[in-house]
Design a protein around this nucleic acid. Sequence first.
DNA 1: CGGTTGCGTTTCACTATCCGGAACATTGAT
DNA 2: ATCAATGTTCCGGATAGTGAAACGCAACCG
Lengths: 253, 253
Amino acid sequence: MTAERDGEADTGVSTTRKTFAILEALKSEEGLTITEITERTELPKSTVYRHLATLTDMGYVIEREGGYYIGLRLLEISEQTRNRKTGYTAAKRKVFELGQETDERSLFVVEEEYDAVYLHRYGSLADTMIGKRRPMHSLASGKVILAEWDDDRVADFVERKGLGRHTSNTITDPDALAEELDRVRKQGYAINDEEYMDGLCGVAVPVHTPDDELLGALGLFGPASRFTEDVHEEFVSRLRDKAGEIRVTLAYG
Amino acid sequence: MTAERDGEADTGVSTTRKTFAILEALKSEEGLTITEITERTELPKSTVYRHLATLTDMGYVIEREGGYYIGLRLLEISEQTRNRKTGYTAAKRKVFELGQETDERSLFVVEEEYDAVYLHRYGSLADTMIGKRRPMHSLASGKVILAEWDDDRVADFVERKGLGRHTSNTITDPDALAEELDRVRKQGYAINDEEYMDGLCGVAVPVHTPDDELLGALGLFGPASRFTEDVHEEFVSRLRDKAGEIRVTLAYG
DNA sequence: CGGTTGCGTTTCACTATCCGGAACATTGAT
DNA sequence: ATCAATGTTCCGGATAGTGAAACGCAACCG
């Protein structure tokens, strides 16, 4: 009823929330029918019908063979974000080169609202993971970005997002995190030692613009069996080269 | 008032339309302030304010330094479309390889609602063009797709979208289009001879799944000066190789 | 320093419009 | 032909979105 609650619940336009509830439903499972969306969103059938009519009319949703799909028009909107900075686009190419040269999975990650978000990725055909959000403290790329922040901002991150445990190796203690970030700052790269998922390791370095603004993190990851001590050096030097190339590209086109 | 008009105007939820009007405004120009969005959308200020509050609350829009930006959460939704089919993801890699090997711009295009839509692209750092929509009849890749359709569907396309002229070379006559599509079918590839933009040429081939379903079109394009008769053969054979590789990837993982 | 301009924010009364139950139409299967 | 399940339409009602206007806050400036 009244505007504000404990947190801040129902600001603004609930109609818009319904629309996006439907889009999110289609994200997780494409080709749904109206009734299936009804079940998943717990919205009345006629409401879903009306919203879908609007969305298809605008082209953001496509109906084909009785099922509904996210339209490519949304792609045009969101792709904007991946090219917001020239450095992002330059990073895309480097991610690809890294993947080809090392035959491992590679990624470029930026931070948004204290999440590590995949902007570019090279890897398995099944799932590109682009747009997926991960907890920063449990990823090599996330730690690289955290290491560039001052203590206050890191403290705020810890407070707001917490240091959730994902494996037995996850850093869950703020002091341990501070130590780790110090180490990252000193050595100039971060390592993920099965901290997010068992058996999954990674290495990442920061990417800077010519005027030393942080763009994001460039990383490689793969199974623990292949990410042993002795390959770290090679991976790190490759990553540094690519990060440097991005910087140069930005400076001299 | 009554449900339908001449075309079909205001179906469904006008609130949702307002939300997307705001998102579209941010797409074309990021970092806008509330008043700037007000001007561009011609919506009252308080309405824009309320919608933006909702969108930022949901994370689809981000506020930074007084300006509003599209959030990366939208990326997660739309990226789904680029990986709807495994072939799409496989094509991404091939587009990249093509670009690297030929040092020209390359693309993978699919059709949606009679538009040619860029799904993957390799080229300039400035603009990736992903998600952009182009008229099918004036693109090599578009013609490749049209050539796979039966006459009825092509006729429907012509009726619905028209054959708009973009340059002096654009095919604007339905019969000429039919002839051209015959040629494309025979030779198995299409050429864009400055039909969309003066000085811009292209070559494209169709991409099929192992069970001969059309996935989209794979193409190369660049300045007319480099796309002369004698290089067509080389480009076409390269494109055919890559299209074949996609097919094989789909068949044998 | 007042005054002014321009912006984001909030208020508030109004009613447009979104809602959703329920009836209806359509399809497909048995 | 019957039935079940789905998509579509209808319609009264009140929710909730609307937008003009007022407010608060900076920055700018005379």
